[in-house]
């Protein structure tokens, strides 16, 4: 069995990240999300950990790495809520898998494609979260289309400069 590495497909541009960036950036994103949004509640509209998940997934272009990254980030997010652990985990695992799959096929370094990609993955992530929480667990959750739309747009807008910032952590 071939060793799983971030550079296993050399025919397309595959990026690697240092261990510090691999662990530090997701932790920093989660910390920012839980700490700063307690001071500025409007920041709860954004999902910085989701952006990090998508970024790592499309940069590595490896489905295993993408889903593991999403799973880890989601589970940590779950642990910080009062809801059962696994809702964010499932949502971000699927988002990471889908993002790495798309990263194999399209140019993910273009700002326009990054905007559309983040818009789509926010919808996908929130939809999975809603299905799991409402229909699997029976929690009181509502699908608010206007809120989800505005959240997707806001995440897409923020993702473009944030992805450009995180590009500096890439190792070729």
């Amino acid at each position: 069995m071939a060793t799983i590495t971030y550079t296993s497909r050399e025919e397309i541009e595959v990026h690697r990240f240092s261990a510090l960036a691999t662990i530090g950036i997701p932790l920093l994103a989660i910390f920012f999300q839980v700490y700063v949004s307690s001071r500025f509640s409007f920041l709860k509209l954004f999902d910085i950990p989701l952006m990090v998940t998508v970024f790592f997934a499309v940069s590595r272009r490896n489905q295993l790495a993408g889903m593991l990254t999403g799973c880890s980030i989601g589970l940590v997010q779950d642990a910080l809520t009062h809801l059962p652990i696994g809702i964010y985990g499932i949502s971000k695992t699927i988002a990471g898998y889908a993002a790495s799959s798309i990263g194999l096929k399209i140019d993910v370094d273009n700002p326009g494609s990054r905007f559309l990609m983040m818009f789509f993955f926010t919808f996908l992530h929130d939809g999975i979260y809603f299905i799991v929480s409402r229909h699997l667990l029976g929690l009181p959750a509502d699908w608010r289309m206007l809120h989800e739309l505005s959240s997707a747009v806001a995440n897409a807008i923020v993702a473009v400069p944030l992805f450009a910032l995180m590009d500096r952590a890439k190792q070729r």
């Binding site: 989660i30 999300q33 839980v34 700490y35 949004s37 307690s38 509640s41 709860k44 509209l45 999902d47 997010q77 910080l80 809520t81 009062h82 809801l83 979260y129 929480s133 959750a141 809120h147």
Partner: peptide
């Protein structure tokens, strides 16, 4: 003192 939140509207709780 409030030192953190869940970071999401889906879980309205704080630490």
């Amino acid at each position: 003192q409030v030192i953190g939140s869940t970071g999401t509207d889906r879980s309205r709780a704080f630490t």
